[in-house]
Amino acid sequence: MWRDYLFARSVDEALELLARHEGQARLIAGGTDLVLQCQRGECSAQVLVDVTQIPGMERIEERDGSIILGAGVTHALAASSALLRLKAPLLSEACRVIGGPQVRNLGTLAGNLVAALPAADASLALIALDGEAEIVSPDGRRWVPLSDFHTGVGLCRLDPTREVMTTLRFSAFGSDYRAAQERLARRKVHALPIMNVAALAAVREGRFADVRIVVAPVAPTPLRLRRCEELLEGREATSEAIREAADLAVSLVHPRDSLLRGSGEYRQALAGVMVRRALERVAGIAPSDRAVA
């Protein structure tokens, strides 16, 4: 596999090590995705540059109403952070269901985003949170909205052979915000989801505001259901409104047939059910059916 394993002590050093190897080097964080790719022969990197020793990569803080995270925050850190549990429960809950504890101890937010698996848990939450990522390249720094970050299965607007994701940011949850993740997998834990929905909204005087719904895997990248969001904006948070949004969701998603995840038809219907359940939880109204375990 790789012939050199190096540690970067700063972002600049990481950039320099990548540049020196001209496309032959690639970043590694927890390795819980990349190592498996290398073992399958899907990654041809000759040199791995480990970013986990770079100071600040694991910071979790709130500044002026924004949550600022180092891109190397592990799922275990995100799940156990008191600040995130209070100000971004969608993210901490999503990280709590990733893999088992061993995977959460090493897997990072940046790795989850850049690996670009279409139903990745932390990515879905960060997209629903309207998160942005700071990417540093030899040409400078830029902030990229995560809703526009993924371009295909395993593909994103970051080149891990020359660029580093350093920081994530999004607005902290206001007290009137609620969020819910609905996740269905072949078993409850330690399995990638058949269908994954993250929903988030403020409910003010009984009405939805700032609604965000992300569904995956129904397309090569996580899908923001903008039309459902618009439909609900300003509407009373009732079962009728939610049902309408869920029906619209069904018409907006076109999952493929999958031997692992079930037929496209089944998962299209499933998306509607799970969007509805997530929105019911966000609205704080009783589920209109009994949850299946």
Partner: peptide
Amino acid sequence: CREGECGACTVLVDGDAILSCIHPALK
């Protein structure tokens, strides 16, 4: 399994459980 699925290879690194089969030794 050598692919992170079974946990048989679990050891602790600085007190954290990790999967040693996918953990580059140099880490």
